[in-house]
Amino acid sequence: MIQIEGVRKVFPGRAGNPPTVALEEMHTQIEDSQFITVVGPSGCGKTTLLNIIAGFEAPTAGSVLVDGQAVMGPAADRAVVFQQPSLYPWLNVRNNVSFGLTLKHGRRGVDHKRVDEILEIMGLSQFARHAPYELSGGMQQRVAIARALVVQPKILLMDEPFGALDAQTRGDMQAFLLQLWRRLRPTVLFITHDVEEAILLGDRVLVMTPRPGRLAEEITVELERPREYAMVLTDGFTVHKRQILRVLRPDQTELHAG
């Protein structure tokens, strides 16, 4: 369980600029194995929130607890997938994926079966020996996800992981991710600025206000699982979408929905 308790983040202003309040009084709680998505306007503090949960940055006030323990820094129970794949170009695809296992068990102690399995699931088996820069953007992002998942983290933090992909690849990747999540059941915090993606993937959508970011609304998604793309056409989906857009773009939704 992740508890976010009164988290506030202020970045000090540099060179005479006023300080930036990135997050203001965030409170929420995430149960194990839940799939949480976060949407909000650009600059509202989504990445900041993820960085604090990951332990890359300390909150100015408040705290994040994982299973009752305060987060003090990054650790192997919380894997992160960034918007950019950030693969290591000096390692081939396979060694990128097994990087976390190598750190933990040494080169000899790597569980090759587990690596093979995840390469297979990700459809990367044929590219195991390729260099990362020889892969397409979508494949690179799959390698990054495989690298995060192979250590079987309890928590998977994803910062707009599909943001740079085209619509087609993006749809494939969403399906992939849901399939993986069903098998491994990590707790997922998935940041996106695509409202449809947020509804389609999440058990619960956290909608944030413009900066300083606050929780505007938490929406429990009432769509059955397994999800599929066709659900965007259902009434239930539209209701959720309208709920979210009303928060994100109050003026515009009235026009469309009115």
Binding site: A75, A76, F82, G100, T102, L103
Partner: peptide, 24 residues
């Protein structure tokens, strides 16, 4: 930064980060 962070959240120690990420 992201290369360093990837290693950190996979549990890399300072020495491991130096050897496996910064050096290459």
């Amino acid at each position: 930064k992201s290369r360093l962070r990837v290693a950190q959240c996979l549990g890399a120690s300072r020495a491991q980060t130096l050897r496996h990420v910064i050096l290459p």
